[in-house]
Design a protein around this nucleic acid. Sequence first.
DNA 1: GATTAGGGTTTG
Length: 746
Amino acid sequence: MPVHLVKEVNGVPEVQLPSCLEEVDFRTLQLGCDYTNKFIQGTVSLIYSLTQLGDGTTFLKILMQEREKFHPEISTIHILFFGDLAEQCAKIVRQGVYVKYNTVNSEEPVCLSVTPKYTYTPLNQLKHGSIVNVYGAVKFFKPPYQSRGTDYCSVVIIMDQSNAKLTCMLFSVNLDTLPVIYKIGDIVRFHRLKIQQYKNEIQGVTTVGFSSLTFEGTLGTPVIPRTSSKIYTFTTDDQKTVEALRIWAANHISSSGTLIKLSDIKAMQYFDLTCQLVGKAEVDGSSVLLKVWDGTKPPFPSWKVLFEDSSFEGDAGRVTQLQNLTIDILVYDNHVAFAKSLKVGSFLRIYSLHTKIQTVTPKKQPNIPHLEFHLHGGTCYGRGIKVLPENNCDVEELKRFLDSVDLDEYQLSKNICDLEFDRSNSFSPQDFVSPCDLERCQQLSATVLTDHQYLETTPLSAILKREAPQQYRIRAKLRNYEPQKLYQSVKLHCPQCHSLQEVPHENDTELVLQEFATEHPDPKLQNTSLYNSEVWTTQNQQERKIVIHFVKNDGILQAVEDTLILIEGGKLSEIYQLSKKFKGVIPVKSSQEDLIVLDLTVPFLIQGKTWHYGCKQCSKLKTMQNLSSLVKEASWTPTCIAQALGIVPLQYVFVMTFILDDGTGTLKVYLMDHENFFQIPASEILNSDDLQKNMEMIMYMLCPPGKKIGEYPWLECFIKSYNIRNEVEQEICYRIFDTVIAEDLI
DNA sequence: GATTAGGGTTTG
């Protein structure tokens, strides 16, 4: 027998190697030497196909890589097998197999192939050009999808205890060989991953013989590998590695916010939904409708997508039974084919599902907000669908939950069960008032008091008769409010002189910036102890010059995201782009002594999406070198920056008037709120569609159009009365305070 | 044998 297979368990051969054998390392091998009774060991990194030489002798060539622990550099040798030995070795030797090989010059050479013993490289020690085995916790993944080439593709980013990240590009003609990842935090083991360089970073790529195991990342669940491979090694060491990674991932990889129940969704967002498919229908060539549920009721009814009855697949009775709990998802483009193949009743996870609230509905349909659900085309953000197996721990939990749902609770009325399953009726007003909604409207307040709960409720009629100043607790309904266009309610308020002003329009800001852009930056004011400066010249724009001053922290430049920059001559769009990358941007201009802020009609600081303005009347401007007082703490908060620059910052506030009615009388009440009342920061709403939609939704709940005032929710509020004296007369005004919108409405 | 894609900019 020329070939001898020795099984090895946890590094100990079951058959003892002959004691006469002596190990030699690769680099001591020399031509012409006798290596009888010597052996080498290493990992098979490549196997060529078994072929025949011209004389008919069978021939096998393999590439063997020395164990890295002995030599930091990788050294490989070719090993050539002939005849029977070649044939037998071809059967035994697999890539990644760890081989002890009794070297040449023996009449009956012995190839001792032991069961694979894999070494795993920590992710911070990967070397460009090597083929490695790695473990990692999934930080991001794209479920496998058909690439434009010949293969399926899955992008997986993993991390391990070294805190290093590795982006892996996994390709395979066979879907089964790609890792079966269900969610962030899952643990993967990759064998034979090639490490290569791309854009100054290393990445892992599948190579011949790639294989993977995936484990549930949830602590305490059984460690069972998900794999299509019938043969794989899994030792107690592997078990320990997975368990250690689970603990690490639980503390270092956040998956919160992605897995959300339908009852928790907020207007306009992306999330991963675990659900059961109740029905599906082809809508048109580029989209498929999926009707799904997760046992919870969304805060607003789902839109109802129209489709041909003939294209519907599912149990119509079941759909009717669950109609208040199911949502309609439109699935587009590259996801369509897979969506069509889904079986009704199966459990799905839909990644990066987009929901948005629509308050404007098509003609002839009641103007009632509803939620749209889209799975857009493409694979950005891991968009896609995966079928979860019945034994998946999340599915098991979902099944238990679905079984426990009391469907009667969600029925509109007894009559609804008698209604025909009518899909042509896209909206019906009853859909939107379930008994529990009504109850809530009638019993509870849509607002919550944050203090003074000892006060008793005073009727509005009584308040109207009294002198100011006073404080009252009231219970009333919102009959009307102004402005109706909510963005018009955002103003700038000076806490010092109490003036209110409009938020400058973008176009005006752009004009002011353009005016200053024509001024010349002073080279004398560049590169000081406070900042390093760079001059950029724009192309094709009459060589416009932009100077960026990077503020240092104690003489040292910080990471981009921690750095405050000063900009001379930037356009609005450029400042906007820079504000996304840097900690903050201050538009400045050169003056005689130092850089100074521009006119206060433009923001003195842009941080992310928030534009900070200063009060023209109250500010006493100081120059940029005054920022050096903040440098040591690097406390680039708007308040600190404003203070250092002598600016009194303006506060963004919602200013609205509410007409409140409690049946005894009506009262005009002002709301001036920074972020407490709506739990939405006034400073961010102008730059956020999501927040605007959220606020629209809240106002819709408080003052639902098309309903009688009896159906409006009650608001419990604190108000204070105060006197306003103008030239002619004295007037009593009222203002809401210490009141917030109830959390379940937000 | 190379290609595929290479997260971060989602939107019917």
